[in-house]
């Protein structure tokens, strides 16, 4: 801060408070809606203050069988999302860290080719090549499975680049010392490289978990069997009502539940989250 001008400080606080309110408003309204009974939405406009029906609504959606749209218990979908997000995050980290290790610490023919093959995945988001990828999964019989949900999404150029960057900054003396002491490459990887990249792995995990949890189009296509539906992609089916009004209180309760885990990750692991976000974009 250059000079201390009172009106500027007041203005800055006002701007920030307004920003915080605008950012939080949609979630607040969704939460309020989830605490009312279905009848509360007949009167014309959404109530602005929480009601008394919170416990009933949430336990009803978690148990399931509320209506034809919300027939699956939500805890099942939460479980599916958790499995998918963890498989994607862990899978991406494992295959990226080993490929980065190979590219940085070995010389072998076709090393450049392998590097470029990985780079290409950066350029082809799943939304772009959706139809042919779907066909591959169908041909491999991976529809309606956790493998089909996660494996096609775990190839990752960004994670490989990140680990490559991290490894390149490690001093060469570490390898030399390890070799003099008679350690093989895998022992070096396990006992020196992995412990030294611990915070990078944790930061990346936070970002990848959010990425995996928030997948929408892919699970929507891959899972026709409702027992594999993830919560983010399942919500669309709940809002599609042919006749009558949607059950707003239940839909909003599901929305709140769907964003709770990733938001909690960001809030409680803020330092790692910021580190991961800024590193992966380099």
């Amino acid at each position: 801060m250059v000079e201390n001008q009172r009106w500027l400080n007041v203005l800055a606080h006002a701007v920030l408070i307004l920003g915080v309110i605008v950012v939080a408003l949609p979630v607040y309204i969704a939460f309020v809606a989830s605490t009312h009974e279905s009848g509360a939405f007949m009167s014309g406009v959404i109530p602005m203050l929480p009601g008394h029906n919170m416990v009933e609504t949430y336990s009803a959606v978690l148990r399931g069988g509320v209506s034809s749209q919300i027939s699956q218990p939500i805890w099942l979908m939460l479980g599916n999302s958790m499995i998918m997000a963890l498989m994607i995050a862990v899978g991406k980290i494992v295959i990226s860290i080993t490929s980065a290790f190979a590219i940085v610490y070995f010389r072998f023919p076709c090393r450049g080719l392998a590097f470029w093959m990985i780079f290409i995945t950066l350029m082809l988001p799943v939304e772009v090549r959706i139809l042919p990828t779907y066909k591959v999964i169908a041909d491999l019989g991976m529809l309606n499975s956790y493998a089909g949900l996660s494996i096609p999404l775990i190839a990752s150029a960004t994670a490989t680049f990140l680990f490559r960057q991290v490894f390149l900054t490690m001093p060469d003396e570490l390898v030399e010392a390890a070799r003099i002491d008679g350690a093989g490459p895998m022992k070096f990887f396990r006992d020196i490289l992995l412990p030294l990249s611990k915070t990078n792995i944790a930061a990346l995990f936070v970002i990848l978990f959010i990425y995996g949890w928030n997948q929408y189009l892919w699970p929507l296509l891959i899972t026709t069997d409702p027992s594999y539906t993830t919560i983010v992609s399942g919500i669309k089916r709940m809002t599609d009502v042919q006749d009558g009004t949607p059950m707003w209180n239940y839909i909003m309760a599901v929305s709140v539940l769907a964003m709770l885990p990733p938001v909690a990750v960001v809030v409680f692991m803020q330092r790692l989250f910021v580190k991961g976000l800024i590193e992966t974009e380099k």
Binding site: F106, M117, L124, I151, A155, V175, R179
Partner: peptide, 26 residues
């Protein structure tokens, strides 16, 4: 890197999962 390891088959093994997934799904 200046200092590297000299194993022959190992790097391919380490790269295999990533490359196979890239080839099949990308």
């Amino acid at each position: 890197k200046r200092a590297i390891f000299g194993a022959k088959g190992l790097p391919y093994l380490l790269l295999a999962p990533q490359l196979i997934i890239t080839a099949i799904f990308f």
